[in-house]
Design a protein around this nucleic acid. Structure first.
Lengths: 256, 256
DNA sequence: CGTGCCTAGTTGTCTAGACAACTGGGGTCT
DNA sequence: AGACCCCAGTTGTCTAGACAACTAGGCACG
């Protein structure tokens, strides 16, 4: 706390500088789980910022999940493990890189087609709208992990067929070439058994346990961007989820 | 917007009254996806509140996921489906009630035992600490859905064995009797095949596809409260996830 | 001993402003 | 037509305060 010099000329907001400084102390063990963080008042006085700025720094730590506030008591370090590998909206490439594997893909199909009803529904398409259909075997460290069939509306990305390198990450391409950023996705997972084709592509026995994913990915506006169906090996692939309370926008009505 | 009369005497915060009012308009279709919400300035002027209060109302809608802000442009209604059934930290009972099924349980075991190494690790127990082990078959509408084995530290709930009704919801009991509220959980899901015992309890063929869940649930402080291993039928149980961007505490560094 | 009161410390909410940074449109100059 | 500037509107950040609500501990009183 003492050693922090705020840079008031920087483009980096003050509250963010404070947040990062506290986060550093938490990660390095300077503040242990359960112990109180400096109060808004203390931060405010020591760093010569207004209380609202100090507050914003503390609130941002809460929304990261590394701290929690109790009215009348203080703001405390949570024992939540930061480093734990939590699944976000990630492309297969990003997911594999995050756990240290080298991902690549084997292209099965890349074409513009008329979508099935489920696809058209999920992507909210007009009857005549085509989609770009991308079917790939996903491979990590030379081991086939899953078969993925991804559909994106042709209307939104008319020249994607020419511009897309099938070995690259689809999400990265959408972000870099079209400035479309996937920010969330809804996903349904089922447990099933590999059929003959899947077994052949994944090099497992027919009837092996597999995950069946059906995922719809959305941009910030809520516009549906991608509909994916994929089959992943149950023996080499695990799903890690962090389930949370739905943050209800802050206020907790008091019936107590 | 026009018809809202703020109650300045109420214990309900102003920003929350505004948030609820806007949320009502969004849900009822008064504001359609993609359209801008009233700006901070407009809300501030029209409702005679300070801009920071109007801002807090809009930010809380963003954190609910029903809106998003763009600097220099405005705050817009997101097309995210509110009603979609997204999995949170829920007990089986709550989960089944949420989708309209009547849950109940068949008790297999309820006892205090010395935990295995995986359990002790996950719950951060001392070597001699016992756990309460609760093994149940989970049933929805008379159909067996899964087998669940739940462990909680005896030290935290010394009289739970007497006070707990095995037919009730464990989470509800912990919340009501001990004021311990589960706020998040880490979960690993694997795809597997039912062994003989599971097949018998779940009334499926041996070798049927199943989900294997391993879940650790935490209170707000980050204290681990419960460690669960469960096996659920792959044919009747689906996982629905909403994957999100990790909210990073607000600031996006500009390399653009 | 316990009950109740008071007080210091803390977070929650709210005000009324200020400037910065960015967007998008319109107008002007070249 | 294109490049540039300016301006109004919007969100992001920040200030310096205020009062309310709650917690926990100390203290006096019964």
């Amino acid at each position: 706390m003492d050693s922090l010099n705020l840079d008031r000329q920087s483009v980096v907001p003050l509250y963010y500088q404070i947040q990062q400084h506290l986060l550093g102390h938490i990660r390095s063990g300077g503040f242990k789980p359960g112990t109180p963080l400096p109060s808004e008042e203390v931060i405010s006085k020591r760093l010569r910022v207004s209380r609202m700025t100090a507050r914003q720094a503390l609130k941002s730590l809460c929304s990261l999940g590394v701290a929690y506030s109790q009215r009348g008591k203080g703001t405390f370090v949570s024992a939540v493990k930061l480093e734990k590998n939590i699944r976000q909206v990630l492309s297969f490439s990003e997911e594999m890189e995050a756990c240290g594997s080298r991902p690549h893909s084997e292209l099965i199909a890349l074409e513009a087609v008329l979508p099935g009803e489920d696809v058209a529904d999920a992507l909210c398409l007009q009857p005549a709208d085509k989609v770009i259909r991308l079917r790939r075997v996903r491979i990590a460290d030379s081991l086939p992990m899953g078969v993925e069939c991804s559909c994106v509306p042709l209307r939104l990305f008319p020249d994607l067929l020419e511009k897309f390198d099938p070995r690259a990450s689809l999400y990265r391409t959408l972000s870099e070439v079209y400035s479309v950023h996937i920010v969330h996705a809804d996903e349904v997972v089922e447990a099933g058994l590999a059929n003959s084709e899947e077994a052949r592509l994944l090099r497992v026995a027919k009837g092996s346990p597999v995950f069946l994913f059906t995922r719809t990915a959305y941009a910030e506006s809520g516009q549906a961007i991608e509909y994916v169906k994929s089959t992943f090996r149950g023996d080499r692939y695990k799903i890690k989820n962090r389930l949370g309370r739905q943050s209800n926008g802050g206020w907790v009505g008091g019936s107590a």
